[in-house]
Each structure stands twice: as C-alpha cells, then as structure tokens.
Nucleic acid binder design. Structure first.
Lengths: 235, 235
DNA sequence: TTAAGACAATTGTATAATAAAAAATGCCGC
DNA sequence: GCGGCATTTTTTATTATACAATTGTCTTAA
C-alpha cells in the first residue's frame, strides 16, 4: 500500500476499512484475517494490526484468537465518534439515517441554543451572525450557502459552552450535507433565513426559552420534510 | 506488565493510560515516549504502540515523529466515547462536569421520551416499568435504587428506537452514579418516584408532548440541585 | 545573520519468531 | 456408535529487532 496525500499507511488503511465496514462491504462475507488483510492491502502486519485496533476502539470490530476479527453489530458502534459519523455519510443515502440524525439534532440544538442565550459572549455571537449573513449573501450558490448554514449551527454549539455539545459538530456537519440531497429534490425549498434569524435575535437578547423554541421550529420543519418526502414514492 | 483479570496486555494498558490521561496525570509533564512507556510498564513496543493508537482513535493523544506523543486538549477528546465517559467518572468529582453531563441529559432524554411515546412496544414499556418498580421497591437500599433508576432511564433511550440515543447510555450511567455524590449531601433528597411515574404514564398513553415535559421536569430539578449545591460553600 | 547541511531523536514500517487461546479433529475406551 | 479427552490447527497476542521517514536542533560557512 502506498502512502497517499500525506497520510500514514496506518491512517490510510483505517480510513479505507472504516468506510468499507460502515458501507456494509463485509456484511455477508466476514472480515478478513490479519494475514489476508496484509495480502489484500500489501501492508505489513504492524500496519494492519494498528488499523484494526483503532477500529476496535471505535466499536466497529472485535478480535479474538482463533475466532478471527469480526464486524460488530451496529448497536456496538460508537456512532457519535466523528470518524464513524463521517463514514456514515459515504454510504448510499438512507432516509432512515437522515431522520435519526435529525432527531439527535432536535434534541441537542434547541438546548444548545438556550444555553448559548445564557452564556454567549461577543465573539460567539459574531460567529453566529457571520453564519447567518453568509446564508443570506450566498443564497444562490449552493456550496457557500451550505457552508454558512453549517457555520451557523456549529457556532451555536460552541457558544453553548458545553464541550459535549461541541462533540456533535461532525454529526451536524454530516446531517446538513445529507440534507441537500433531500431538500434539493423538493422544489423551491431553501433553508429559511427568517427562522435562523429568530434564533440569533433570541440569543442576543439572552432569551433562552425563545432561542430554544426558534431552533426547535427549524428542526421540526426538517423532520416534517423527511416524513413528507419518501424516496420510495418519488417525491 | 502482567495480564490482569482476563484482559489482554494491550487493553490493560489502554485502561491504565486512559484513566491517567483523563485524570490529568500528564498535564504538566508531557506524555512519555514509546521507549519510556515500554520501560515504565514493562511492555513490548507493540503493546505500547497499540494502546497509544487506540487512545489516538479516541482523540486523547496525537503522535508525530521526532515530536513525540502528546495529550490533546480536552476539546479534541471524543467525550461521548463510552470509555472516555467512564474514565471521566474516575477522576475527582467536579461540579462542572456533572452540570455538563446533566445538560446533555436535558437535551437528549426528553426527546428520547417523546420518541418512546410514539414507538415503544410492549417489551420496551415493561423494561421502563421494571425500572420504576425497582426504584419503588428498593427505595431504602441505595445501590439497588440507583441501579433501578439507571435501568429506567436507559430503557427509555432504547425505547426511542434511535440508535444514536442508545449510545449515550454510558454517559447517563456515569451521570447518575455521580449524582449520588451530590444528592446524598442534600438532606432527605431521593429520586422522585411520582415524577418518574408521570413519564411512564405519558409513554404508555402515547403522549409524546407529555413525556417530553415530564422528563424535562426531572432533569431541570437535577440541574437546579447542582446550582444550589456549591461544593466550595459546603451545602 | 542567515542558510545549507549534518546530526539526532522519535515515531512509522517491516519481518520473524514464539506464546496463548479456542475451535476442530481424531482417538480411545466402552 | 458415542461420550469424553488429548491433539492438532488456526488465528490473534506478544516479543524482539532492524531499518525508514520525519522533523527539530546544531554546526558551519558564506
């Protein structure tokens, strides 16, 4: 295995295997043994073992002598691990996972907004406002509008002052990127600027309850969109 | 290093190092080099490296040639990793971390209860009721009452049907175990049975909004308790 | 003073050999 | 035939060693 774009062999293999596992590549067939891994990826045993150990640390694999290395059931995966979350995005779009992401966001973000209303300092508020302005200014260019949308939501997580909320930034990043796949198919729908502005205003006023409900409204709408749109039917 | 109680050397070292890092043992001094680790723990380089790699996968460490291995800032830790969460409990009690845990619970559990009200099947409800009954029947014995309390809350996470919520069981487990350290110091306080019962009843009725608010009430009370009780003052 | 190059420290990678675990197999006595 | 026990075999776990790659530091010369 050749080292690619600055990543070490071990981390390259970690990435490759992580994506393969999450996308179900080994579901029927069982995971390769160490020897097979070394051969398939032309890697040394050290590299293969360390990649497997890292995947084990994330709950994706387990290994025992004689029994081999197995893919763990999804219920054991560390779904909130940023790497795992990211790998989840690389697999074929699933309405279910998108709904589950949004349910997590529905739980976290309103409370984060409420905490932000209580604790945000000037710098926090500037970051949130920058996100909102970006959404407004680049409404036409999808990529930049999405980036600004993400910036807005992540800035609120940070402003909450709770490091655990901050951990979920990768999930929200992923969820919002998935969401374009959904909302683009629904004619004329774009992220609502006024709804986002309401959140900012409430945070600026220190209105925790207002921020909570304004954010909750944004996410409830997303959740409604998902339920309305069933990919099996068409739109 | 001798293998202890059935754990492999690598996992033993992972546990030891994880606890040490989280408890701040290397904060001033910097993390040992591979060579030093091998010597200090009488471990082979493979064992040391694999333990370090797993800690890297959890965001606690980073390693670069010539620069050595460093403890990452807390903001990079995978705080929602079950192992990390558990290690956090082993360090000296901190009012801050307990508040942060409870804020996460305040976000997650009400929404989980609402989803449970929509999706719970008979088995889910039985598990929740078992928890509640356990709290009632063993109100006097602290250990069993705590276990039942945990069972109640975790059963609701499971009943939500969202695997991401289920990931937070270790955090809730830890938070509730920490909570006895707080509530025991507040005379006469025990987990409120009626408040928990209200959650169960709402879930049984399929009343999502009722379940959400009932659960929210429980957690808001916990949060109030923390604010009231300042360990610096005494009680 | 600065830049080029040599040096050194530390992690990264490779390989070989042995140990331990546990499943599979075969053997034996009955 | 069949149950139980010893043996074999497969696979990961551990140890040891050597070399490569990276990068900070020091030296030296222009």
């Amino acid at each position: 295995m050749r080292t690619q774009h600055g990543v070490s062999l071990t981390y390259g293999l970690l990435e490759t295997l992580g994506q393969s596992i999450v996308s179900g590549h080994y579901d029927g067939s069982g995971f390769p043994t160490e020897a097979e891994l070394c051969q398939q990826f032309s890697a040394s045993r050290t590299v293969a073992r360390e990649a497997v150990k890292m995947l084990t640390a994330k709950g994706l694999l387990s290994a025992r002598p004689r029994q081999g290395t197995k893919v763990e059931p999804v219920s054991r995966w560390n779904l909130l691990d940023p790497d795992v979350t990211r790998w989840l995005m690389e697999r074929p779009f699933s309405n279910t996972i998108y709904r589950e992401f949004t349910e997590v966001r529905l739980a976290i973000e309103p409370v984060a907004a409420a905490l932000a209303a209580q604790h945000a300092d000037r710098k926090d508020i500037k970051a949130i406002r920058d996100g909102l302005n970006g959404m407004r200014d680049h409404a036409a260019e999808h990529d930049q509008a999405l980036a600004a949308d993400i910036e807005f939501h992540v800035a609120i997580l940070r402003a909450s002052g709770n490091p655990f909320f901050w951990q979920l930034r990768e999930l929200i990043n992923t969820a919002l990127r998935l969401s374009i796949g959904v909302t683009n198919k629904i004619s004329g729908h774009t992220a609502s600027i006024p709804a986002h502005e309401a959140v900012l205003i409430a945070i600026e006023k220190g209105d925790a309850d207002g921020a909570l409900h304004a954010m909750r409204a944004i996410l409830l709408e997303s959740l409604e969109l998902i339920k309305t749109y069933d990919p099996a039917v068409g739109e």
